[in-house]
Every structure is written in structure tokens, then in C-alpha cells.
Design a protein around this nucleic acid. Structure first.
Lengths: 356, 356
DNA sequence: CGGTTTCTGAGGTACGCACCTCAAAAATGC
DNA sequence: GCATTTTTGAGGTGCGTACCTCAGAAACCG
């Protein structure tokens, strides 16, 4: 049997009340007694029964997800995945709020947080550009004891507890190899379309991409990043301009949202299917692009995994529990036309008999 | 607040004891009353608090993992991952037993199960060849109410609750594209090395592989499968024989364990680095093969995810809870030299202060 | 040393559920 | 309508923990 608080009390030669004070960091216990209790805990290998604890405490967790108010398919999918996870067992006894904030307004995020201000928040998942405002916000959140994870795009300079997302450098490298191998050995230039170089994920992808190109495909020259700012028309315009300026573009790496805009530019230039195209995220557009051959490869991350991982980590941090690094590593999928799965499997329903 | 058993009793106009009898399928309740209680449950949307239930019941789950007694790195890694998961929160209040059984002995699996016979088993994860014995075993297990999942390699003819593993057909397709694109446009033959065609995963990989080759790379001809039976020397011998028999082999698809044997054959034939090689699973050998260029691509599945997914599903089935299909879909990673991650990240330790 | 402050122990209630007993009520058979 | 059987209700205990109160013990102060 696993030891209980009573066993600890007995082992430490104190009462249950004292063990409780130590365990829950309540005041009124001498340092010496605290040590005695902790020793007993170590000796017996006591592990708090989280289920019983939450049952007794009637605790509810409040988690806030801050996402950019951007109309991309990926963000819609991510929001849906978070809403899904909020209904699942991982969100047991927690309340999730999803706030979407305009990306250009530096104070919007702070306001979003203040809107929740009546009750304290246990944890916060943030997807935002890497700016001083966001960094300060994270510092403040941590100072007041809120768990913070960055989502999709990291804030390496801020004291977040964890980054929930793929290794974007590795993703960029993968994109680089695929594109390099598919493009063949003739020299040429590569257009790189990103959302914004303020976004860390874009920076990292670009970094990894350039590394591989330099190491292994020196005959290919990547052009400066085209920042589409998640705007279809803008993306189309700057891509078209880039294609017009360089007649030696043999491939496009779409590192951020903007596949629709890129497609438009390609169509207008009469280049559909004639360039190697590597994009990110599986959406309706990239899927059909893979199917009709206008996209050669897609590097995708699973939004469901992102949502669940963020939730698990916030919960673990709120409970001061360890997290399983292996489980929280978000993997990337390499999708090609030939391994594109058909529709996702139907949900697995429980036995109807008894509603457990 | 979520409704409790008391709310149900009130709503249905019966006592708590009756609700309890209905919920736990105890005898002594009229059909009419059962219906009334179930109606109340539906109306209120009652969901049993599994944590509280397990706390009250002091329930422990017993799960058995049956793995083949085969000395491959993948199986060692899988065993370690299961042992890891057994220490994690997913294995809360459950006891895991891992049984390794000789693959050639058809009755060994049955014996492994009988060894556990003193107490009934709540769930069983099976990795085994697709034979009638195994199928009968699964049928018997299901009949006695044990949850059954197949692990890594499926048993589509058996009434298992779920298959925990990758989509091997898609994996074979992926291998096919990569190999096809890397091999270039010159005609040639491809050696295919598998563990055993009795293993469903091998069959499916081969299927997907052949599909893609036929569709997209008709100039490449895949030779009949070489069955290495997870034996290094045997694999080396038959691979060498194959290479000797056909001087036009341009690529090797190592669909099953056997990378060491294949390497040996390649070395002896003086062909290291001169053929396109696509293999499965990230092990020491495939990792170093990628690094030194003797392997072009590796298709990998995460053993940690396999172990956790199996555990989650067995537990859900034992509790008659729904499972999240999205979460349980095991993804494949495409690993190339350029996106091979360095050492895995260090474990994230909890705050040392209080042992929650 | 007495008085004050700081710790500690004993005990209780609650969380949501499982499982038990015993008596009372209702349905059934004849 | 009575005896018998089947259903139901009332109530209790325990799972492991959180959180509360109050009295008493120990440590500290001058």
C-alpha cells in the first residue's frame, strides 16, 4: 500500500494536523518540525494522492489561452482543438478561457489578462510575437505565481515554464532537406514566405532552413524573408513582386501562413506546379495542394497535441507536479501526397449501457 | 457544479441506495425503476466522478503486456517505455506486468496469460504475429471481459478493442516515396527486408510500399520480401544472397528489424553508401547510419507514445470511458540526417520544495 | 520566574462515491 | 386477503486528503 498522511504523522512522531501544515505550506510550524516531517516523507516515499486531494479541496483551476486574432486556418484549428480539449478529461475541474487579441496592439494582451482580473488565474498559455510587452507580462505572471507556457511560438527570453510546440529549427531543417532534394542540382533561388519575423517560430524555421541549405545545397540561394503578416492579399503581392524580380526562383518555402496568397501569385505568374513548394501545417489548402501536386511537402504539427500538452503542463505546474518531457515533445509530421491520410478515423464511442 | 449521485436520487424520486444499485449493476431493482434512474441520469447529464469512485473502491487495475522475446533494439526501447509509463501518472493505481514470450512457440502466449490466472486481468496489450492461436486468445479474453489492444502490429481479424500503433500502410507509402525520390530515375531493383510476413505491420508496410512504387516509380522493381526473423546472421546471409543474385539492386527498404544484418551484407559486398537505404525505427544503429550517410531516411514511431497510449486505452476500456481518437493516433516521424535531433531534452523536474 | 508568543495535537466536517446492513414498503402468488 | 417474495429506503463506514477550531504544550522573553 502507498503510505498516507497518517503514516507520515506516525513516522515523524507528530500529529496529522502538523503534517498537513507542512504539506500545504501553512504557517505555524518550527523549522525543525518541518524537517522531521520531510524526512519521514522521504523515508516512506510518500506521494500525495492527487485524486483524493482534489476531491477534498474541490479545487477548480482557471486557465487562460491567449491567441492572436488572426484569420488563418491553423489558428481556427488550434482554437477548435483547445475547445475540444476543454471538454476532455484533461480539463477535469478546470475552466478554460480563450482570449484572442489583435496582434498589432501591444497592450491588448495585458487588457485580455486584466479582464480576467476578478479571480486569479492558475495558468496561462500564450501565443504571441516576441516583444518586450509580452516578456514583461510573462515576468509579471510568473511573479504572481501563475504558470505560463508559450504556445506554438516561443519566448526564449521570458521566464516561461515551458514551450509547447515543435522544434522549429528542426522543422526548418526538414523543410530545407526536402526542398533541396526535390529541387535537383541546378542552381537557383528560393523565395521564403513567413508571417512575421517578430514571431520566434518563423525565425527558428528560417534559421534551420538556411543552415541546411548552406551545408548541403550551396547551389540554392534563399532570398530574404517575405513577411505576409497573415494577410492573403499582402502575401500575394509581395510574392508576386519577388517572382517578378528574380527569374531564377526554383522553389518556395512557405514557413508561415500564406499558402492562399502564394498560390494566387503562382497562378498569376503561370508557375503553378513548376516550382518546388514546401509549406507548413495541414489545412484544407495545403491538403488540396498536396493532392493536386502544387505543393511537394507539408510539415505539420498536431493541434490536438498542442492543446492537450499545454493543458497537461499548466495543470502539472499548478499542482507542482513533474512533467514527462517525452510526452510533451510535439512531433512534426512530414506529409507528402503519397502518405496523406484520408479523413481522420471516426471517434471511438463508449459502451452505451451505463454512463460511467 | 456537476450533478452527483444525490442529485440523481432526488431527480428520479428514489433513494441513494437505489441509484447506487443501478449505477453499479447490482441486482434487486425493477426494470421500471432502472429506467427512471437512467432517465434522470440523462436529464441531468450525470457523469460518474471516476477519481472519487476509484478512491472509494480502492480499485486497482491489472494490465498485462505481452511482447515477443526478441532481442532487437526497438523491443528493448519499447519495454523500457512501458516500464517508464508504469511509473507515471497514467499507471495510477494499476499494476503492470510485462511478459515476453518466444515468438515461435504458439502456446507460449496462452501460458503467459495463465501464469497471471490467480487474479483476473483488466486489460491486455498484445504484440504478436497474426496466428489463429493469438486470435483465439483475444476472443477468449474479450469473452471474459478483458480489454484487449494490439500493440505495434495489428490483428485485424481478432475482436481487439483498439490497435495501438502507426498506420503501417501509410508508413510503407512514405518509405516508398522517399526511396523512390532518392533513388533517381534510372531503372533498378529494390531489396525489401522484413522480420516476418506473419507480422501484420510488415505486411501492411510492404503493401503501402508496393502501391507507391507501382503508382509513381514504375521503373523500380521491388523484389520478394527477405524474412530475417529478427536474426542478425540470417538477415545478413539472405541479404547478401539477394545482392549477389541481382546486380541491379539500387536500394534497400528495411521494413523490419535487421539493420545490423543488412549493414553487414552491404559491407561485405562493398556497397556501403552506394545504395539508397530506408529503414524503420530510431535506434543506435539507424541513428549512426543516418549520421554517416549509410542510411538515407528512417521512419520512426515513438515508443513512449505507444506505451502511454496503450495504457490510456486499456484504462479507458476498463472504466468503460470514451477514448480520444485524435490523441491515440500514433504519428510517424520522418528522420533524415539533417533533422535528426541531438540527445533528447533533460527531464523537467518539479519544484523541490514540497512533494505533492 | 511568570507572562507571552509560538507551536502542536486532537478532533471534527467535507468531497463523491462504493458497499454494507436492516427494516419497511410494495408487489406478487395463491 | 394473507403469506411470501421482491424492491426500496435509511443509514452507516471508509477511501485519502483539505481545512477548520480550540485547547494545551513548549519555547521564548525580560
Amino acid at each position: 500500500m502507498r503510505p498516507t498522511v497518517n503514516d507520515i504523522a506516525h513516522e515523524a512522531g507528530v500529529s496529522l494536523a502538523t503534517v498537513d501544515r507542512v504539506l500545504n505550506a501553512r504557517p505555524g510550524v518550527r523549522a525543525k518540525t518541518i524537517r522531521a516531517v520531510n524526512d519521514a516523507i522521504d523515508r516512506l516515499g510518500y506521494v500525495r494522492n492527487v485524486a483524493a486531494a482534489n476531491l477534498a479541496r474541490q479545487r477548480r483551476y482557471r486557465f487562460l489561452f491567449i491567441l492572436p486574432a488572426v484569420e488563418t486556418q491553423f489558428l481556427h484549428a488550434l482554437q477548435a482543438a483547445i475547445a475540444d480539449a476543454a471538454r476532455g478529461p484533461l480539463a477535469e475541474s478546470s475552466d478554460l478561457v480563450i482570449a484572442t487579441v489583435p496582434q498589432r496592439d501591444p497592450h491588448a494582451i495585458v487588457r485580455a489578462l486584466e479582464d480576467q482580473g476578478d479571480q486569479p488565474i492558475d495558468g496561462c498559455a500564450i501565443m504571441a510575437h516576441e516583444t518586450p510587452d509580452v516578456r514583461d507580462l510573462i515576468i509579471r505572471l510568473k511573479a504572481q505565481g501563475t504558470a505560463v507556457v508559450t504556445l506554438v511560438t516561443d519566448q526564449p527570453q521570458a521566464p516561461r515554464d515551458h514551450f509547447v510546440g515543435i522544434d522549429n529549427r528542426a522543422a526548418g531543417r526538414t523543410a530545407g532537406v526536402l526542398l533541396g532534394r526535390f529541387a535537383g542540382s541546378a542552381p537557383g533561388r528560393i523565395a521564403v514566405v513567413v508571417s512575421s519575423m517578430l514571431a520566434r517560430d518563423m525565425v527558428d524555421r528560417r534559421l534551420g532552413f538556411d543552415e541546411v541549405l548552406a551545408e548541403r545545397f550551396p547551389h540554392l540561394q534563399a532570398l530574404p524573408s517575405l513577411e505576409g503578416h497573415d494577410d492573403r492579399d499582402l502575401t500575394a503581392r509581395i510574392t508576386a513582386a519577388c517572382l517578378a524580380a528574380h527569374d531564377t526562383v526554383v522553389a518556395i518555402y512557405v514557413a508561415g501562413a500564406g499558402m492562399r496568397g502564394v498560390n494566387e501569385a503562382l497562378r498569376r505568374a503561370g508557375l503553378v506546379g513548376r516550382l518546388v513548394v514546401v509549406a507548413h501545417e495541414l489545412t484544407d489548402h495545403t491538403r488540396s495542394g498536396l493532392e493536386d501536386g502544387s505543393i511537394d511537402a507539408v510539415i505539420a504539427q498536431d493541434v490536438g497535441h498542442l492543446a492537450r500538452s499545454a493543458l497537461r503542463i499548466l495543470r502539472a505546474k499548478a499542482d507542482r507536479m513533474a512533467i514527462d518531457a517525452g510526452q510533451e515533445q510535439i512531433r512534426i509530421s512530414v506529409l507528402l501526397r503519397e502518405n496523406l491520410a484520408p479523413a481522420p478515423p471516426a471517434p471511438d464511442l463508449p459502451d452505451p449501457a451505463i454512463p460511467f
